[in-house]
Every structure is written in C-alpha cells, then in structure tokens.
Amino acid sequence: MTASRIWHISFNTFREAVRDRVLYNLVFFALLMVGSAPLFGQISVGLERIVLVNLGLAAISIFGVVIAIFIGIGLVSKEIERKTLYTVLSRPVRRWEFILGKYFGLAGTLAVNTFFMAVGFFAVLVFVTKSLAASDAQLLIAIYFIILQFLVITAITLLFSTFSSPLLSALFAFGLFLIGSFADDLRGLARMVEGPQHSLLMGLSYIVPNFGAMNVVSQVAHQQSVPATLILHNTLYAFLYAAAALSAATLIFENRNLK
C-alpha cells in the first residue's frame, strides 16, 4: 500500500513537471547549447572534442541543476500554498510517503531529461568526430555522476521546500550547490588555517555536499579514465547524502503544522 501510494505521488509529480512549459524551455536551451558546441570547437582548432565534451556535459549538468531547483522549490511549498496538500494528507497518505513520492517523481523527471539530453549530446559528438571510440564509455560515467549530483541536489531542494519560501529555497539550494562544487577548496582553506576555525571549516567542508568529486567532466574530456572505486564510492555517497537530506525533510515535515 505504501509503495503504491509513493508510486502514485511520484507519477503525479512527474506528470506535473512534464506538463509544465518551463521544463521544455529549459530543455530546449540545454539542447541548443549542446548543439552549438561544434561552433565553439571550430574556434579552437584541434580541440573540437574537448570543447564539445566540456560544453555539452556542462550544459547537461547546469540545466539539470536549474530544473531540479526550480521544480524542487515548489514541490512542498506550492502544495501548501495552494492547499492541494490538504486533500492529499487527509487521506491515508503518511507525510513521509508524500516526501518520498515527491522526491522520486522529480528524480525520475530529471533522469528522463538527462537521458534525452545525453542522446542529443552523443548525436552531436558523432556528427563532429564522425566516430565513437570505446573510450567514449567514460562519457557515460561522467553523465552518471551528473545524475548522482541531481539526486543530491533534488533532495536538498526538497528539504528546503519543507520549511522555506520558494525564493529562499532557491537561493539556499543554489548556494549549497556552489559551495559543494568548491568543497575541495574549502578543505584546502581549512588546511591552511589553524585553531577553532580549522575544525569549523573542516567540519563544514564535510557537511556540504561534495559535488567536486562528482565532477569528472574535465577528466573525461582529456580521455583520462575514471577509477571503478570512485564510481562505487560516489554512488554510495550520493545515496547516503540524499538519504540524510530526505530524512531531515521528513523530520521537519512530520511535525509541521499546516497553517
């Protein structure tokens, strides 16, 4: 029963996203960016593939994050504001089921989007390089890591959406995405200072999502291989972090009075 309710909520969330015009605009721009990559490639002679991979994967990642945040911020708060949540929660739907349903719905939406953008990306890649090498499988790993990032950022946005207004949620989530992308630098900074600031910065650098490690775009652009252990650990990390964010969201939402 629980599973079927979560599934129905997920499906409805997916359906809402798919029927939203904003989504198509964003996907359109992302594909436009991927498609325009060969133009940039021509400017830098001999670097077509590198530029294409960097730009294409960056487009998939950035637009995915934007979609995750823009849809994610409204997942809970919009339902409260429009009172649609009242008609859901007055039914035999547990609040945590609602949170999970919303999460899987958006995560599914992003997975489907990423699939289409990846297809577009590979089409452009084949068009430009006229061939696909076995090493291009590394690109799939980079895309897989991008999806892992989406899983984390979606959970974070959903967490903010349970207690904050959409605008603030967007700011928080985007800020955390930026900080998380520079988590390595934060740790570098922590190593340079001493005393209480050191522990504080170090602790902070491990609490923020470690997006830096999930970005191997530059590596695969230079055809360096990604170690299998990194794939395993990044997967584990993304699941754990998403679980943490979702349980925080549940904790807040379970005890929230819906005024």
Binding site: L230, A243, E254
Partner: peptide
C-alpha cells in the same frame, strides 16, 4: 516516522562524511 527519520539522518550524515573522506583519500 519522526524517530526513524532522526536515526536515518544521523547515521546517513556520518556515513556520508566518512564516504567523502574516503573519496578524498582516493584521489
């Protein structure tokens, strides 16, 4: 649900931090 969520939150946050350390050491 709240109690389960609290336990999962603490455990997964610790595990995630450990995993992040591990990833750091790996690369």
């Amino acid at each position: 649900a709240s109690r389960v969520a609290a336990v999962v939150l603490v455990l997964s946050l610790i595990a995630a931090a450990m995993s992040a350390r591990r990833i750091d050491e790996m690369r």
